[in-house]
Amino acid sequence: MRSFSRLLMHCLFACSLAISIVPQSALAIDSQNLPDVPPGYVSIKTVDPIRLVGYTVGDVIEREVILTIKAPYKLVETSLPIIGYEKRYKGQVIGIELKDISHSEEVNDSSTTHHIHLAYQVFTNNVVAKNAALGPEYINLVNTKNHQDLVKYRIPSLDIAISPIAIFGQVKIENNMSQLMGPLELSNKKESNWLKASIALLVISLLGLLYILGMRAWLPLMGGSFAKAYRALRKLPNTPEGLKQAVSKVHEALNATATVSVFSNNLDDFITEKPSFAPIKSEIQQFFGLSRHVYFEPSAIHDTGSDPRLWLQQFVRRCRDCERGLTPAPLTQHSGQ
C-alpha cells in the first residue's frame, strides 16, 4: 500500500513537470514558425549598453527595446521573453539567461509604443574571450481585425564578448584575457635589475672618483699633505729606518704644501707664503734639526727630545692643524719641548 502511494506521488510529480515545460517550448517553437510581420507596421529602437566586451559569469547586462506597433497589429504580451529561459544554439546552452523583464506601453490612436526592459545575466565563461549574444527575442503580434492573423517580430540580438575570469593550469599568459588581471604588461624585472646594478656601480664609481679626486681622502680636509703624512707616520715602524721614512714624509708634505723644496734657509719665504704655519715656525726649525741629524750629520744635536718619533707625530699633527687653518693642538709633555 505504501509503495503504491509512493509510485503515485512520483507519477503526479512527473506529470506536473511535463505540463510546466511543454507549453513554453511549444510557444517558442510556434513563434519562430509564424510568418513575419508585414513591413512598416513595427519600428524598433534599442538602448544598448555602452560596453560590449569584458563580461564574465555573473554579470548583468541591461537592454531596453522600444517597439512601436501600428494598428491593427498588437503585441501578444504572453509572447514576451520568459525569465529564466535557457537559450540554446545548435542544441547547446549558450549560458545567458534573462534575469528580469519589465514592460510598459503607451497607447495612441494608430499605434502602441512598448518599452521592454531586458536584464540578462551571464552564466558562462571561457579560458579565452568568446562571442555571445543577447537574444534574438521573438515576439508575436496579432491582427486585431483578424485574430487568425498571427505574426512574429524578431528583436535583433546584441553581440557581446565574454571574457575569462582566471585560468587554471599551465597556460600561456598571453591567452589569459581575464579583465581582472588588468592589462598584460611586459616584464621589466631584468631591465630593472640591470638598472639597479648600474646605479650601484655608478655610485661606487663616483665614490671612488671622489676618493681619488679628494687625494685619496674621504673628506676634503683629509686630503691635505700633512693629513696624509700624519696617517702615513702612524703606520711606520718605530725603528731608525722608520724614523728616516717619517722625516722624509714630512719633507714631502712641506714641499707639497709650499710647491717648492723647503729648506731651513727658505723657511721665512714659506712662512710668508703660508702664514697659517707661523705659530709653529720654531718647531719647523726643530724639524730641520732632526732632519739634519737623521739624513746629513748624525753627530748633530737635535732638540726634539729622547723620542723623536713621538715628537714628529705630534709635530705633523700640528702641521695638519695649520694646514686646515686651525689653531694647532698643544704639544704634550712627551714631545721633548
Binding site: F263, S264, N265, R292, F296, E297, S299, A300
Partner: peptide, 12 residues
C-alpha cells in the same frame, strides 16, 4: 761650524 755638508751649504 758643521761637520757635514747640508743642502743649505750647497745652496750657498
Amino acid at each position: 761650524n758643521r761637520t757635514a755638508v747640508l743642502p743649505e751649504d750647497i745652496h750657498a
